[in-house]
């Protein structure tokens, strides 16, 4: 694995000057991912979303690698086509270079509208890495719920009030859906654990086939927390078991961080405006439900790790 020192000498794939909000985790994550991809020729695709909008405001681009922007549902499909064409040209001897393919999408473009094209790309076994920067709602259009939005989070289309306590449904477990496709590699990560993310990108790009990394990316305006807290919240998500960071390869689960004493979930929730209503008197049962759900999912993950490593 590349050391921090080595990484610092590499050419940046996503450079500064773009218009992401101060404290944006998604731009930090993409920067780390492209550093981890190294200096090999890299072709990327991105669907419509925050990161597309803020990094490509005419006449500027923050991308130092090839980038194709396509519609909301099409990142995986477009990169599939490029990868398939590249394989064909390579087979015919018309291209020599070893090219890496990375597709990006937010949670709206991955969990929701783009799930079909991602599923197809993995099933067809394109050798590409798909990265979901998961900020848990449609942030580009102003914070609407997605199927990645957690239970009880307030969004503009799941407003917390007397009828509903924020989003009434639980979050879709996308990483497990992808693992069910048996890709070459799958993982969850978050930029607070940056070396873990770097290592996962290296593994994903080295894997012989489709790979997937789901990166939890805290969002300052959407989640509603002070902008210097991004990395703290990113780590808290792991320390409270809200977002376990783990990987799956060759049928085996490996949990990368197992907090010795997990922090209570409320430590993560209380810093964010989207969960503020949960701290009001009378909503204790919702906090308990959320904590119980996090515990249950953690137990299931532990059992999966045990069952696949026995």
């Amino acid at each position: 694995m590349a050391s921090l020192k080595e990484l610092s000498k590499r050419t940046e794939g996503l450079v500064g000057g773009h218009r992401a909000c101060a404290g944006c985790a998604a731009s930090t994550a993409i920067r780390q991912i492209l550093l981890a991809a190294g200096d090999k020729p890299t072709v990327t695709g991105i669907c419509t979303g925050c990161m597309e909008v803020v990094t490509t405001i005419f006449p500027y681009t923050a991308w130092n690698v090839n980038l194709v922007h396509n519609a909301f549902e099409n990142s995986a499909a477009t990169v599939s086509g490029m990868e398939a064409a590249y394989r064909a040209l390579k087979r015919k001897g018309k291209i020599d270079a070893e090219i890496q393919f990375i597709a990006f999408g937010g949670d709206g473009g991955t969990y929701d509208i783009g799930l079909q094209s991602l599923s197809g790309a993995i099933e067809r076994r394109h050798k590409m890495l798909y990265v979901c920067y998961d900020n848990e709602a449609y942030m580009n259009t102003g914070y609407q719920r997605s199927s990645a939005t957690p239970y009880c989070a307030h969004t503009t289309t799941s407003p917390a009030g007397t009828k509903i306590p924020g989003k009434p449904q639980k979050r879709k477990d996308l990483t497990e859906i992808i693992i069910a496709h048996e890709p070459a590699y799958a993982a969850q990560a978050t930029p607070g654990y940056y070396m873990d993310l770097i290592r996962k990108v290296e593994k994903a790009l080295a894997a012989d086939g489709p790979s997937f990394i789901n990166v939890l990316s805290p969002c300052v305006p959407g989640w509603g927390y002070p902008l210097d807290q991004t990395m703290n919240i990113s780590k808290l998500a792991v320390e409270t078991l809200f977002w376990p960071i783990y990987e799956w390869q060759d049928g085996k689960y490996k949990i990368n961080i197992k907090p010795r004493e997990p922090k209570p979930l409320v430590d993560f929730l209380k810093l964010q405006a989207r969960f503020r209503h949960l701290l009001k008197p009378g909503n204790e049962h919702l906090l308990e439900e959320l904590q119980a759900e996090v515990n249950r999912r953690w137990e299931v993950l532990l059992r999966k790790e045990q069952a696949t490593n026995g």
């Binding site: 709206g108 449609y138 580009n140 259009t141 102003g142 609407q144 503009t156 289309t157 799941s158 407003p159």
Partner: peptide, 14 residues
């Protein structure tokens, strides 16, 4: 959600 129509959905959600 899609710009520039999103406010209609947001209001209907409310």
């Amino acid at each position: 959600p899609i710009t520039p129509s999103t406010e209609i959905a947001e209001l209907m959600a409310e």
